[in-house]
Amino acid sequence: MGYGDYQCMDANGIREDGRKADEMRAVEIECGVIPVADGSAYIKWGKNEAIAAVYGPMEAHPRKIQRQDRAILDVRYNMAPFSTTDRIRPGFNRRSREISKVTKDALESVVDLELYPRSKIRVEIEIICAEAGTRCCGITAASVALADAGIPMSDMVVSVAAGKCNGVVLMDLNKPEDNYGEADLPMGILPMTDELVFLQMDGDLSMEEFKLCWDYNVKAAHDVHAIMVDALQRRYGGDV
């Protein structure tokens, strides 16, 4: 199948995996999956699967990376070699470095770093199974893991993506829609205020399409946020 041959929707407006244009994949989150970590979360987002673990605050090493007035976030996004059909060579690459950086920037806007001067908070995100949208998956899991670790935050970042395929704006692109589509717009949203803390755009969108993607994302962010809160509450046995 070449570029342009792919049909993301049938005549009834139903996508390949049975969703409508504004529908997102099923999301499941579980907290505390890594007992030795200070906080952790497992997320299943469609066929995407990721684990995030948080360690710290701990002393930042080497000393030259310490900040005298605040903590630093050390975010590492990594895809397991077996997470995709093409084996990924283990270790950092250009893409994982970029995603680690944008994840760090998104999380830094909510975490209360000033409380822990000279410290480091380690956030590890491991993608176990990838099906487009792993950076959103990772950021969302990292937010839940940070909350589970008891790190003070002004809000939890929820990351979701919308995009365009065959000229139709679609919520939460899956693998073929992402590969053959025209645009992808991942966003990090603070659900309490609808503020934007992270935005990337791959491809071109018209102003109207961009606004529609934004609306889709904000709505989806609220849905995912409810799942995140539910996961955290289940971890601690609901209301006490």
């Binding site: 008891g150 935050m153 309490m192």
Partner: peptide
């Protein structure tokens, strides 16, 4: 008033605070 961490809400007179569920 915004909760900054996961925990149980406590109200002691005029003070609103959160008992954390995990901490260092």
């Amino acid at each position: 008033m915004v909760a900054m961490r996961m925990g149980n809400l406590q109200e002691n007179g005029q003070m609103v605070s959160i008992d954390p569920l995990s901490s260092r």
